[in-house]
């Protein structure tokens, strides 16, 4: 094993994020098994399903690059979904809901950031506990029963297309491009890289370490809010279960895309392809008759294998 890990071949292979290989393999399988599925319309529908995940990943990759993690996305999505679908704000406009969602995401992200950077609490525990609190809160408000319907405007927006592509997918690509610009072109992007590589060295270079971590978490909260809006639009009804597995999937897609705690070789597009992998993975698995349980196993194994892949490399 160690001989393989230190071989030039492994080093060259490990430069490219695993998501690229996996996506290529999945497309080949699809092509061989169901060639008729490989057209823009069908693929567009598959990809549209994973847009909430894709947006959540944009936040996840940010916090993971500063050696943190955000598992509160599930709670945020559930809370925002409840606010929109339960009718507690009768007659509210789309703009109001968007503002409400963004404010919620901002507040929760900021709270996470302050707890992690200022109080120095373990990010896993804080964000997981917060998610539990939010889930409990929503279930209490709804007494465990699904709330009502989502205003029609959400579904209508969700189903629009631009230049042949579903608009949610375009929205996702645009957000991803924005995040890529933020990380590659701004001073903040440099701060993120510095904090991820070494917090003490960043501190002694004058980088505002705590503020960078707080900002990363706040942005992650905002991304979760956007993901919640898209997710709510996609299912069109309220739910008390929606989005609960998204945080962990977002960690998986991020690791698969070559971004691990403190390091970001995969950039923003590696995780982007990681999300696409999940889109096609579930299609392929359904195609071969693998049920939800099998998908859970696959998710777990993918995270573990990707983490082992990077663990072995870091150990060398």
């Amino acid at each position: 094993m160690s001989a393989f890990v230190s071989s030039p071949l492994f080093r060259r292979i490990s430069k490219v994020p695993p998501s690229y290989y996996l996506l290529a393999a999945l497309l080949v399988i699809l092509f061989v098994a169901r060639p008729q599925m490989l057209n823009a319309n069908v693929l567009g529908v598959f990809v549209r399903q994973v847009v909430p995940l894709g947006i959540l990943v944009l936040g996840q990759l940010l916090v993971m690059r500063v050696k943190s993690i955000d598992l509160s996305g599930g709670g945020i999505i559930l809370l925002i979904n409840y606010c929109i679908s339960s009718g507690i704000f009768p007659g509210a406009s789309l703009g109001f809901y968007v503002a409400l969602a963004l404010a919620t995401g901002l507040a929760i992200g900021l709270f996470n950031g302050l707890m992690v950077a200022k109080r120095r609490v373990s990010a896993v525990i804080v964000t997981l506990a917060l998610s539990i609190v939010l889930v409990g809160f929503v279930q209490y408000l709804s007494s465990g029963k699904p709330p009502g319907d989502v205003p029609k405007i959400f579904g209508e927006l969700f189903n629009t297309r631009f230049i042949g592509l579903p608009s949610p997918v375009l929205f996702w690509i645009a957000l991803t491009a924005l995040m890529a610009l933020l990380l590659s072109q701004t001073v903040f992007g440099r701060f993120v890289a510095a904090v991820g590589e070494s917090m003490p060295a960043a501190h002694f270079s004058g980088v505002p370490v705590e503020r960078t971590v707080i900002l990363a978490h706040t942005l992650a909260g905002l991304m979760a809010a956007l993901a919640a809006l898209v997710q709510t639009a996609s299912i069109a009804v309220g739910s008390v279960r929606v989005g609960l597995d998204l945080p962990i999937l977002s960690v998986a897609a991020t690791i698969l895309g070559g971004v691990v705690f403190g390091r970001g070789e995969g950039g923003v597009w590696g995780p982007f392809f990681g999300v696409l992998c999940f889109a096609f993975l579930f299609v392929v698995m359904t195609m071969f008759g693998v049920g939800d349980a099998g998908k859970l196993v696959a998710q777990g194994l993918i995270i573990l294998l990707a983490a082992i892949f990077y663990g072995l490399r870091a150990g060398k």
Binding site: A293, G294, V297, A298, Q299, G300, I303, L304, A307
Partner: peptide
């Protein structure tokens, strides 16, 4: 990461 993925595998 290790135990979280194990959680998923075992649950599956």
């Amino acid at each position: 990461v290790a135990t979280l993925s194990m959680q998923y595998v075992v649950l599956g």
